[in-house]
Design a binder for these strands. Sequence first.
DNA 1: GTAGTGTTACTCGGATAAATATTGTCCGAGTGACATCGG
DNA 2: CCGATGTCACTCGGACAATATTTATCCGAGTAACACTAC
Lengths: 172, 172
Amino acid sequence: MKLGEGVEAAIHCAATLASVEGNSTIPGAALAESFGLSPSYLLKHLNMLTAERILESVPGPAGGYRLARPAERITLLDIVLAVEGREPAFRCGEIRQRGPVKIDASAYVKPCGINAAMLKAERAYRAALAETRLSDIVANYEAEGDPRSIAVSCAFVERNQRPQKSASAKQI
Amino acid sequence: MKLGEGVEAAIHCAATLASVEGNSTIPGAALAESFGLSPSYLLKHLNMLTAERILESVPGPAGGYRLARPAERITLLDIVLAVEGREPAFRCGEIRQRGPVKIDASAYVKPCGINAAMLKAERAYRAALAETRLSDIVANYEAEGDPRSIAVSCAFVERNQRPQKSASAKQI
DNA sequence: GTAGTGTTACTCGGATAAATATTGTCCGAGTGACATCGG
DNA sequence: CCGATGTCACTCGGACAATATTTATCCGAGTAACACTAC
């Protein structure tokens, strides 16, 4: 029961990208510096977000990342699943069948009750994450956050965002 | 977002121990053989359950493990936390403060909104696990499970359970 | 026959290696901006 | 002065190590049962 450290970085980056205007982009290196992370490693996570159609990447000079769709349509669940993988945390290895006493497989057609209970809990977890949209995170930050912190964030975005000419982005 | 494989083994072992009568015990080696696991490794997990007062261990010949309290008072959350640790899966590293632009720490007294959302989801996860008691697992298995599988389980318990003389167990 | 005693075999428990996943780093492919050159 | 073109610098993307965590194994400490001996 442990989430990778990259999840936190991915969410922060997505929240930052939600603040850029229009179709501008921010380079991954700038995001990494903003959070004190290794640029090369952060790209790995941003890459996963791009593969899941949450971010779009623009190559070349003045390139970078931007949200692939409005922040209202991106949930925390989308980001967590993109970074950590879609498979559930609890994987039933069906160890009840691995004992020395072998009986017919037809005795195990019903799903393991333990597995069912664990998956039910995970559904509750994912449902809670799906309730929170990225726009909620940004709105809450702008409403409740400290003015000084907000000023720093806005200055960072203003300084690093790079406008794009064409409205359509690279679609892999 | 990945649970260790030992969680599944721990829950299965606890469910098996819930079926023994009185204060009898089952050796860890027998449980390991029952699920096709390494005996020495399973003991590591059973040890954690013992440290958390979920199981009791009886040393010496005719020793083994048994539940430390009735199955009605043991939840899946108890077992998961014992094996995986109590700390939450999402640990906020406060990377928002680690950027090159340093401002006063008083700007970050309010908890990070991202952290709050992630912890809220995790509370939902734990609440769902806390709703399921070990006795529910056993009852569901006895009601819905295949008769052949139940027969194998009962035979295993009958064959490996070892009655204890004293009613009080070792309290570490 | 019964109580005491020494041995023994069985249990758990923690310390020790191997395997795997995660984290971190590096270099290459691709692309658009920019400067230069020609008309 | 305007357009075409070649170069270049900047971007992302995937391949390559280092570290941390998880998994697996081994050996030792402890304990109660058992057999044996003495009474």
